[in-house]
């Protein structure tokens, strides 16, 4: 399994719900868990490093349409 596969599946599963409410925000996801939503990408990245350290995690912009 490639890095971030689990996180991308998690993001894609919750994206329809998020897109209707949080379009343009950045989702921070680790494994199967949505950690939070942030208005700025770097804030989500900083929170990821604060919580998990230098390990893979996913920060992804929530858009109404697009490819994950």
């Amino acid at each position: 399994m490639k890095a971030l596969d689990t996180e991308l599946k998690t993001f894609n599963s919750c994206r329809p719900l998020l897109a209707s409410k949080c379009h343009g925000d950045f989702a921070l996801i680790k494994d199967n868990e949505l950690i939070g939503l942030f208005s700025k990408q770097y804030d989500a990245i900083a929170e990821g490093y604060r919580r998990f350290g230098n390990v893979p995690f996913l920060v992804k912009e929530v858009l109404n349409k697009g490819v994950a």
Binding site: A3, L4, L8, K60
Partner: peptide, 8 residues
């Protein structure tokens, strides 16, 4: 730099 991915 030994970095891990934060996005795709």
């Amino acid at each position: 730099l030994g970095l891990k991915p934060v996005g795709s």
